[in-house]
Design a protein around this nucleic acid. Sequence first.
DNA 1: TAAAAGTATTTAGCATACTAATTATATTTG
DNA 2: CAAATATAATTAGTATGCTAAATACTTTTA
Lengths: 148, 148
Amino acid sequence: MTQELFARYSFLLDRTARKVKQYAQHQFKSGEFDVTVDQWLVLKNLSENELLSQTELANLVFKDNPTLTRIIDLLCKKGYVDRVPHPLDRRSFQLHLTKSGIDKVNELRPKILEIREKAWENLTGKDFEEFKRILDTIYQNLDNQESE
Amino acid sequence: MTQELFARYSFLLDRTARKVKQYAQHQFKSGEFDVTVDQWLVLKNLSENELLSQTELANLVFKDNPTLTRIIDLLCKKGYVDRVPHPLDRRSFQLHLTKSGIDKVNELRPKILEIREKAWENLTGKDFEEFKRILDTIYQNLDNQESE
DNA sequence: TAAAAGTATTTAGCATACTAATTATATTTG
DNA sequence: CAAATATAATTAGTATGCTAAATACTTTTA
């Protein structure tokens, strides 16, 4: 029955996403990167967008605010990020990469690009396009549904 | 640069997998299913395989032992599962669905198949095949790598 | 058969995902 | 302008994912 397949695909999707993160996390660990995969995602986005608020950053990386608060806490503790009070809105912070944070991003970026490559071996350019299209379709299907 | 794309795909994969789980979890909640998505996965596998040990079940659902221990704890508390001492190996349990657990599976199965369907709208049979093939390829790429 | 190695499960601890509620501050509106 | 509403960030609580170590038991091996 086709419906059973949908459940199976959902399982495969979850399993593969976990494997990709797991693999990257192992490499991060053995390379002593001093950040997790999710912390890296946040650092990388901060390096590409200065003066974001936490809510703006949360939207960029598709994480909820509590999760982002904790990731930022950890990155502040590690000295890679500062919370700068927003000049116009006292509820808000502007997130700022420290010198050490910038150095970390520059150090890790090429290593991480290499790590990410492994997952995509044995796949063609056409596969990537198909994959992206299908992922986006799934995402849209559920994103629109949500408000109903 | 192509490498940047790999990082982007990894992000999309993670984001989509989370969205699929999130959507299902919302539906589970509004339907008052009394189990989480992961607890359902475990219940469903137990209904299809009697007398599994926790390690066997963990391998089936691709979860690690500590995570499975906790999920089984919760399902026992809810009265859906029993841990039966293994007759030959005193380290081990045989997992057993209670009457209430069987009823729960029968009640939820059709509802959940319907929920799972939503993610796959606007996709063709060929898309599913491609998607499965690509997910499996990625999984294999990293699964083999792991031992190195 | 006693020691060593292996296995099943659990515990502890950290990180992330999510919900709900709280706090502090801004904005809108009557 | 005061009250109602909205927003940014945090806190608290639960569930999951992972690692490392502990416990209890089995199997292997010297």
